[in-house]
Amino acid sequence: MASSPRSPQPAELEISRQSRILAALSKKVIDLDELRMLAAQGVPDGAGVRSTVWKLLLGYLPKDRALWEQELAKKRSQYEAFKDEFLPNTHSEMIEQVDRDVKRTHPDIHFFCGDSSFAKSNQDSLRNILIIFAKLNAGIRYVQGMNEILAPLFFVFRNDPDYKNANFAEADSFFCFVELLSGLRDNFCQKLDNSAVGIRGTLFKLSQLLKKYDGELQHHLEITTEVNPQFYAFRWITLLLTQEFNFADIIHIWDTLLSDPDGPQETLLRICCAMLILVRKRLLAGDFSSNLKLLQSYPPTNIGHLLYVANKLQ
């Protein structure tokens, strides 16, 4: 009797995904739909291409590879001009806030924190980007927490195996940060807080999504124990889950978030909903204080499984 075929091992799947992503990136004109589909499953760390993939997903790199060099040179030169214009700055309340937040960014990671010249130069880059962004976007300026959204972008770009790209991580991060925030600005714009498109509208969408997929849990959480989404999901949503998981897991979650052609918001809401469903037993057994504590300090979880569950909520 023939033996049943062996299911592929995780390492084999990783190599297979790696080769598919490398093949997708080697095309003269990148098929973004294909790249999104592959990246949504996670960009293999070993491929050394996450930096390029994210730049494509965020529209920073054009689909036509022949245009990359020219486009990058143009953008990087433009960023230098921004630095010349906006960084000879006087002290202000906003700059002090940026300084405070940059120093607090991932204090447990040497890349961002510590006394090394490398960490200090990385902090300087974060600071420069946030100040220039604030000065160019008077409608939003700087909002506390933007440093947390910038950090994964800068980390990935600064760690590009191609040192030529790594050296321009600050400029590249700036433009990708602008692009990412353009899809999220409603969550940061205080004027819109109470509107259907502001953060409250987004929190309501999360509540409705949970109601659709797990009405019992939604009722227990919000009606019985009165744990409203703004008590825990405000941070999840505005900071794109950067405070809820370890940094390596955040990077993997962002592979999926950035793969959404309509911007990260809908995928983000599905992941938030999946986070609730994955701890439903504990939530259903909990009261206000235990549920709030659980959701404000989300337990370690298998990120692959979380993303799998989130993907089913479509």
Rank of each mutant, 00 (worst) to 15 (best):
C176M: 15
Y79E: 10
I30E: 03
R36W: 03
R185S: 11
L221A: 07
A2G: 05
Y142A: 07
L257T: 00
A47T: 15
T224F: 01
D162M: 08
L136P: 06
A47S: 15
I223P: 00
I237K: 00
F112E: 02
I109N: 08
I149T: 14
Q265S: 12
A138S: 15
F234W: 15
R282K: 05
K55E: 12
F188P: 00
K27A: 15
P8V: 09
L61V: 13
F112T: 06
I30P: 06
S92G: 09
P264A: 08
P152K: 02
R104P: 06
Y308H: 12
N246A: 13
Q218C: 15
S77W: 07
R185A: 07
S19C: 12
D84S: 15
A81C: 14
E170D: 01
Y298V: 08
L283S: 05
N89D: 09
C176N: 11
P10T: 02
Q314N: 14
T202H: 01
H252L: 09
A47I: 14
A285D: 14
T90F: 07
K55P: 06
L257I: 04
R50C: 14
F154V: 02
M275E: 01
L56W: 03
S290I: 13
I250R: 01
L269R: 00
A169K: 00
E244N: 05
M275V: 00
K205W: 01
C273A: 05
K293D: 10
F133C: 11
P229R: 01
R50S: 12
K205C: 07
L22F: 07
Q123D: 03
Q230I: 08
D162K: 06
R158G: 02
C189I: 01
K55C: 15
N291T: 05
K28V: 13
P10C: 04
A40E: 01
S7H: 09
S4Q: 10
